[in-house]
Design a protein around this nucleic acid. Structure first.
Ligand code: FES
Ligand code: FES
Lengths: 140, 140
DNA sequence: TATATACCCGACTAAAATAGTCAAGTTTTT
DNA sequence: AAAAACTTGACTATTTTAGTCGGGTATATA
């Protein structure tokens, strides 16, 4: 049960932007250097963030990305959603007719995993980007 | 961010035992049939459960497995632990000197992921096996 | 207007994790 | 003796992950 690096890097990069941007665009190159994330990988990540309206881009020289919402308003759940990182701890789809075991009835544990998903999601919903910056003595 | 099937099946199988055992051993064959889980896979899972003292085995004919603790006392976190399913949402080890990015300082998001882990773990700690059996109308 | 900077985008791939199987046992009850 | 059921390690196909690559396009500035 671990988060993938894409989601992790996305949160990291956006946190970086929140720290360093003074309303002007932050280039991926800078984020890459500061946070030690591959530039090519960041591009892939920001493509999704842009498509999902988490950031907007400024092209050309001195270009980069800008946060659409303020760190105070941007929920972590929004970020994860942008990266298709569904918090679905099991395979069994809520809407699908098929349950996890291929049968038509729900398995004995179904409700429990549902509860778990809700529990985790509510955490991500409750946290905003700005919450990451509270105690940042430990930042590089 | 999903749970692996081993953990899922483990919880499922133990819940099955809690429902069907009347103090006598439950064979993996029966669990396999009732829950639709591969017998061979169950064997692998129960090996770990046994090593971690979640179940004990009774060999020979009419043998099977028995829960060591009562469903009222068996925490879900114990089950997951037995299957090495650490709830460590990121790679960065708490004790290791190395942080997620290979640097010696903790990254900007470190504390947040720690909080997340605690949040999830506390859920698994708070839930007992018996909690899964509450509303089991939906059981097969 | 040349050019460097930086975003854009799809396709590709190596490596790791997962999910599950197989073979060859051992133990115990009937 | 035979059958049921646990024991164990090794093996493998598939999927997912974590990235890379190549070839773009847009724009500020010199
Ligand atoms: S039926 Fe939904 S988790 Fe098994
Ligand atoms: S340093 Fe621990 S998560 Fe990055």
């Amino acid at each position: 049960m671990k988060l993938n690096t894409k989601s992790r890097y996305a949160v990291m990069a956006l946190a970086d932007m929140a720290v360093f941007s003074c309303d002007n665009a932050v280039s991926l190159r800078d984020i890459s250097l500061r946070q030690g994330i591959s530039l090519l990988y960041l591009e892939q990540i920001f493509l999704k963030l842009k498509k999902n309206n988490i950031v907007k881009s400024v092209r050309g020289i001195n270009g980069g990305y800008i946060l659409v919402k303020s760190p105070k308003e941007l929920k972590i759940s929004d970020i994860l959603l942008a990266l298709d990182q569904k918090v679905k701890t099991i395979g069994c789809k809520k809407d699908s007719k098929k349950s996890c075991n291929g049968k038509s009835t729900k398995c004995i544990t179904h409700n429990f995993w549902d509860e778990l998903d809700i529990h985790i999601n509510s955490f991500f919903e409750s946290k905003k980007l700005i919450d990451l910056l509270k105690h940042r003595e430990a930042r590089l």
